[in-house]
Computed example of a mutant assay.
Amino acid sequence: MLNPLKRTLFAIAAATALASAAHAAAPMVKSPSPGFFRLMVGDFEVTPISDGTVDLPVDQLLHQKPEQTRATLEKNFLKVPLETSDNAFLVNTGSKLVLVDTGAGALFGPTLGKLLQNLKAAGYQPEQVDEIYITHMHGDHVGGLVHDGERVFPNAVVRAGKADADFWLSQANMDKAPADKKGFFQGAMASINPYVKAGKFKAIEGNGELVPGISAVAEHGHTPGHTTYMIESRGQKLLLMGDLIHVAAVQMDNPQVTIGFDSDEKAAYAARKQVFDDAAKKGYLVGGAHLQFPGLGHLQTQGKGYRWVPLNYTQMR
């Protein structure tokens, strides 16, 4: 039996231990929420899906003085390398499940390649995807099509602009490309060819509707066959514009600034101006592959450039 003094000391020690435990800091989780968002465009459910982010030395990539890029980023509380989103968009029309772009897969390192886990977190399985529309065949848009050489989306038909397919899937073009550009061809071939072999690839040869409510519109320049996709339901529109813009903080104010990834700089700028002018005039929603996730918003003209108005956060109702 403990004497009264020892019992008192024991009780104080126990109470102190419990109080310390109760006030201890909870462990840090250090992981983000699943990268998906959701909205309705008319009767269509649209789910932007994050493939992750990648740090880009945009001061070396944009075609203006590096110090000018760095100064603009600093004014926007950003820095180089710029953490850049890589977005895809899943569209459920009610009769078709269509994925626009697929992220980088294993082509760009561990900070990307998250599309599949986020697609599943959003409530879908890769086997459910009916069609995949590729804006262009750069690796950060097609890499998610395959895993270890096998098709990730076994039931999907993949579609992309014919000019992109003719260019990036050509062995002759890869052979004559500079050494630092060959990887673009290798990534496209590794990602697209398994679908070609399975009879699951179909080139887009002109503008027009692919499935009811989703149309392809050629906007060449960034690549030879770069294609945008217009989603339309009950009078509401969303244009998925791929890589018409990469660095909003710079290129909204100065849309003439192009980037080293552009195949044809003049055509890329012309496509951006044409699309942005139309979106600003008509007020429809746009989605960009490299705008900050979820990459959705509206455009307004502002001086010689544009103002980006991110979509207001909304719940599904």
Rank of each mutant, 00 (worst) to 15 (best):
M1C: 07
L2I: 10
N3I: 04
R7Q: 15
T8G: 02
I12G: 03
A24I: 03
A24G: 06
A24E: 04
A25P: 15
A26L: 13
M28Q: 13
M28L: 13
P34K: 00
D43A: 08
F44S: 10
V46F: 00
D51E: 08
G52S: 05
T53A: 00
V54E: 00
V54F: 08
D55M: 05
L56E: 07
L56G: 01
D59H: 08
L61W: 10
L61A: 09
Q64E: 10
Q64G: 05
E67N: 12
T69P: 04
L73N: 04
E74N: 11
K75A: 12
F77W: 08
P81R: 00
E83Y: 00
T84D: 06
T84L: 12
L90F: 08
V91L: 13
N92C: 07
G94C: 09
S95D: 14
K96W: 04
V98C: 03
V100L: 14
D101C: 09
T102Y: 01
T102M: 07
A104L: 07
A106D: 14
L107N: 04
L107H: 06
L112G: 05
G113V: 08
L116R: 09
N118H: 15
K120S: 12
Q128R: 10
D130C: 09
M137H: 12
H138L: 14
D140L: 03
L145R: 01
H147F: 13
G149S: 06
G149P: 04
E150M: 12
V152D: 00
N155T: 09
A160I: 09
K162D: 14
A163C: 09
A165D: 10
D166V: 13
S170T: 12
N173K: 12
N173A: 14
N173W: 04
P178S: 13
A179C: 08
D180F: 10
G187D: 08
G187M: 13
G187N: 10
A190S: 15
N193T: 14
K197S: 15
K197M: 11
G199M: 12
G199Y: 10
E205V: 14
G206S: 15
G208N: 09
G213D: 01
S215F: 11
V217H: 11
A218S: 14
P224N: 12
P224L: 07
G225E: 07
H226T: 04
T228P: 01
M230L: 15
K237Y: 12
L238D: 03
L238F: 11
L239H: 06
D243I: 06
L244M: 14
I245P: 03
I245Y: 02
V250I: 13
D253P: 03
V257C: 00
D262T: 09
Y269S: 00
Q274C: 03
V275K: 02
D278T: 11
A279N: 05
A279D: 03
A280C: 11
Y284V: 05
H290P: 07
L291C: 02
P294F: 10
G295E: 02
L296A: 01
L296R: 00
T301S: 14
K304E: 15
G305N: 00
Y306N: 02
Y306K: 05
M316K: 01
M316V: 14
R317V: 08
R317Q: 11
